[in-house]
Write a protein that binds this DNA or RNA. Structure first.
Lengths: 217, 217, 217, 217
DNA sequence: GATGAATGAGGATTCATTCAT
DNA sequence: CATGAATGAATCCTCATTCAT
């Protein structure tokens, strides 16, 4: 009945799609759904239907719902971390690295809204694997920031305990996350403004800290 | 911990318990479960069984699962906010208010582990009412902090836009939240140390900001 | 705390309401609810709340949901049948009795919308007692009509089997019911028009109707 | 009644049954249950069990309880209307069409007891979709009858308002329905007798009937 | 490689009805 | 007389996951 000479459009009937492509399509569909409705609000059925494949395919490729969710997380995580790493690399002048890192972060927030949602908004945090992933993401961000701070301290000849640097780095990452949420509620604000607010807040604080200033009650 | 002379364990058969009492018992049970397993990991069935009542009672008193969850949130929120408000009230010396507020916050984190979990760890953030609640909690914390900052700025004769104060306050709240998570992973750290790290980070940063210092790329 | 001299309005707190009054109030509330939402759509809870009494009162007075529903049916039935009986009584000229009966019927439909609904629209007909009630109502209407027909036949000296009269009477009652439904969908039609259509149809038959014959009171 | 050689009993374990077949089986089972116990008296669980499938299958195929009920209604409706249409088609002599239509109707009542029940006995009439369906069925029957009447009127050169025809057609349909119920209570009566009573009532009216006039096919 | 068919298990919610006071 | 407190029992529905073809 079907005339092979007049092939159906590729998004209607596709044969022999390479595994990597299929996988990516499915993951993108899933990420969009997770971002829109959250983990529990998304069903495997819907992922399959929207991906144009049958459900067993989704299982074949990702093993489970958790699997596909974590794949989405990993993808977004990779994008965020790589972008931050690049920003704070040696190619950036030392005194601009924090600023560059923050810019990378907020650029991700702005441009990869989906990825941001998957990473920070709906992790069913009580479930082992998800909580782990969330912690890991924050830790990796904190490491990027922590390295900056360590270098800075070293350059200033200050002695700061790694443990303290780690804690402060986490705090800074949390501040960034919170400011990103604030930004979502105030979308009229320019990205540069948001970046500068965070950087100033952090730089001046961290700077004084590194310089040895301390407040005690 | 429970004094049998004053309160029968909830798995004892008791009938005709006044509404207010039962309601509180049920809410406490629910809070513990939500904190332990998250919203989706907790079933109404279990809340009922552990409360020693039948499911219809739970519905009679809270209307729905969302209802009882939000009741738990409201309770914890009240505890946290009131405690922070008290700490930063006029009875505290101005230069110690931020410290007092942070202490109140981390004390809550330490002592009301359950409340903390319910408030910050498992809100199904994509669902309207839950997301609203989460935002509201952060906003209220930010307001407490923001008032401090405004007063401080005024005292220093500085002109800071309310919008900026609001954003920074949110960032600071986020920093506290992140530091609380860090603390969870490093439980050997003393509370006072955590408090001071956050306060120093914030105070020196905020202080410089309020003093008009600015970094630009 | 309450000052008996300043008694609460009677619809807020009422004491010692005579049984008959309470009963009637409750039945009226129930009838309204049944008419609006059907039997299954109405809950005992709602009947109690709207009646301003506790649920056990409703059970005390009517025994069960079925009980209160059947009480509503009985009340409406009484109204309808009595009104039809009156209309076709000896006080009405014989040749106007059918017309008078139909008028009584459609008047009931028009004025006791609630009663009509309870009687004809939501009987869960599969449940023994309800089906019985529905049949009884139709039978009683058919009896009223059947007596007319018998008298008429006798007057004309015709011999019609009671069984046939009964069947035709039921058909006529069904025709009336159907026309009442039609009327609901065409509320702009005058009651007299509806009555005359039914009466003419019954008296003359479709054939005569189409031939232009008409009976008028 | 079931021929084991052609159709395995539905309580035999069968897997991989094509959708269309399963769907039909499920609908038939459901129709039987609805007819026997009414809508509210039937549970999805029972439909599933008796169909030899699991509940999710029922939902997969019909979406909801309302869905499967309406599917039963549609099926029965189709049978009834098609049969009536066929009876009154041009292939039947004009003066016998009403009789043929009535015969089709009562044949349906007799032979498709289940369908009849689903169509006319337990629609939860207060619920939107069900009430709509019930109205639609009556309307469609009335249309079949109405067309007959219009043709008849035209042939006789009479001018009858469509609105009046519609109303009378509905009344006639209601008369048929009522007579069908009467028949249920008097199952010893022959179908032809019932048909003739209705047709005579409709064609001649009570008056002529009482006067002894009779139409016969 | 790919899918239509199928399900076990569980979850939220509602209701008619009855105690104990 | 009157009620607030309480429940057993269902019901509808959904979902992640797998088998048979």
């Amino acid at each position: 009945m079907r005339d092979p000479a007049h092939a159906a459009p590729i998004d209607t009937v596709r044969v022999r799609v390479p595994r990597a492509v299929r996988e990516r399509e499915m993951r993108d569909v899933a990420a969009a759904l997770f971002a829109e409705r959250g983990y529990h609000g998304t069903s495997m059925d819907e992922i399959a239907v929207r991906s144009g494949v049958s459900k067993p395919m989704v299982y074949e490729y990702f093993g489970s719902k958790e699997g596909i969710y974590l794949a989405c997380v990993a993808e977004a995580e990779k994008g965020l971390i790589e972008s931050m790493e690049r920003a704070v690399s040696a190619e950036t002048a030392p005194d601009r690295q924090l600023w560059a890192g923050a810019t990378a972060f907020f650029t991700f927030v702005e441009e990869q809204r989906e990825g941001w949602s998957v990473l920070f908004e709906e992790a069913p945090s009580k479930d082992g694997a998800f909580a782990e992933a969330a912690k890991r993401i924050r830790r990796r961000q904190a490491q990027v920031i922590g390295r900056l701070m360590s270098a800075s301290a070293e350059a200033a000849g200050a002695q700061i305990k790694p443990d303290e640097i780690d804690a402060i780095a986490h705090a800074l990452v949390g501040a960034g996350e919170a400011m990103a949420m604030w930004w979502r509620e105030h979308p009229e604000t320019e990205r540069d403004v948001v970046v500068l607010r965070l950087v100033n807040f952090a730089l001046l604080g961290v700077g004084s800290l590194l310089a040895g200033e301390r407040w005690t009650p």
